[in-house]
Amino acid sequence: MESIRFIIGTLLQVLLVTVFLLRVLLPLARAETRNQLSQAVIRMTNPLVLPLRKVLPPIGKVDTASIVALIIVQAAAVALMWLLGGYPGIFTPSQFITVVLLTLIRTIINFYIFALFLYVILSWIAPGTNSPGAALIDTLCEPLLRPVRRLIPPLGGFDLSALFVIIGLQALNIAIT
C-alpha cells in the first residue's frame, strides 16, 4: 500500500500540481507564450482557470485565478493522499490548510531545485541551445540566479550561482520539513 501511495502522490505532485504551478510562474517570469511547452501548460490548465477567471480578475500582473486553481489542485491532492492514508490522523480545517500550504511551498522549492539542475546540465551539455525546453528553463531560473550573480560573480569562468541557490533552497526545504 505504501508504494501505491508513493506513486499516486508523486504523480499528483509532479504532473498535476506542477502544471498548475507553471501556469502561475510562466507569466511572472515573462516566459514566451508562443513556446510549445507554455502552450501545453495553458491548454491543460484552462478547464479550471478560465471559469475561475470569470469570478477572479487579475490583480496587476498576478493572475489570481491561476493561483486559486493551484491552491485548489494542491488541496485536492492533499485530500486524496489523506484518504489513502498518506497523512495520519484527522485534520482540523486549520491543520488541513497548513498541510496544503506547506506541501505547496515544498513543491515550489523542489520544482526550482530540479529546474536549476536541468539549467546547469543544459549549460554544460548544450550551451546556447535554442530549444523550447531550454528557453523555458532559462526564463524560469534566471530571476533566482541574477541576484546571486550580483553577490558572487563567476569565478574563473565558472558560474557558481546555481550551486548557491540550490544549497539555499535545500536548506529552506529542510527548515520547512
Rank of each mutant, 00 (worst) to 15 (best):
T92K: 11
L12R: 09
S161Q: 09
M1P: 11
S94A: 11
F158V: 15
I137H: 00
D138M: 13
P51V: 04
D63T: 02
I108V: 15
Q170T: 03
P27W: 04
P58N: 07
I8Y: 00
V49C: 09
L144M: 12
L155Q: 11
Q13I: 13
T64G: 01
T10R: 11
V165G: 05
P47Y: 10
G89H: 11
N130S: 14
L11S: 11
G85I: 08
I7L: 15
G60N: 03
T139Q: 15
Y112M: 02
E2S: 14
K61P: 04
V100N: 06
V120F: 01
A134D: 14
R30A: 10
L15M: 10
I176Q: 08
A115S: 13
Y119G: 00
L25I: 02
I137L: 02
N110S: 14
V19K: 07
T18M: 12
V41N: 07
G128K: 12
T103E: 12
V68A: 14
W124T: 11
E2P: 07
E2C: 09
L136E: 03
L104E: 04
L104G: 10
G156E: 07
S123I: 01
P143A: 10
S66W: 01
P57A: 05
S66R: 01
F20R: 08
K61N: 05
L80W: 06
V99G: 03
V148W: 00
N35A: 09
P57R: 09
A115F: 10
I121V: 15
A171L: 14
V49M: 03
Y87E: 05
C141T: 10
S131I: 02
V99T: 12
V55E: 00
P154E: 11
D138A: 15
S94T: 13
N35Q: 03
Q74H: 07
G9S: 15
M81K: 06
T129C: 12
D63L: 01
M1D: 07
L104M: 10
K54R: 03
F96I: 04
S123Q: 01
V99W: 06
F91P: 09
G85A: 08
L118K: 00
Y87M: 08
I167R: 02
L144P: 07
T103Y: 06
A175C: 11
R23M: 05
V99S: 03
I7P: 08
A171N: 07
V100I: 11
L145M: 14
I8E: 00
S131Y: 03
A126P: 08
L122S: 14
F111E: 08
T107S: 14
T139K: 14
I59M: 08
V100W: 06
V120M: 04
I176W: 09
N46Y: 08
S123K: 01
L52P: 03
R23A: 13
T177I: 10
L163N: 05
I67C: 09
Y87H: 11
K61E: 04
L56K: 00
I59H: 05
P47V: 10
T139R: 14
G168A: 10
L140Q: 12
F96D: 06
E32A: 13
S3G: 08
R53Q: 13
I166S: 07
L172G: 12
T177E: 10
G133C: 03
M81F: 09
A162F: 13
A76C: 11
I167Y: 03
P51A: 02
A31D: 00
I7D: 09
L16D: 07
I166Y: 06
L15W: 09
R53Y: 04
P51G: 02
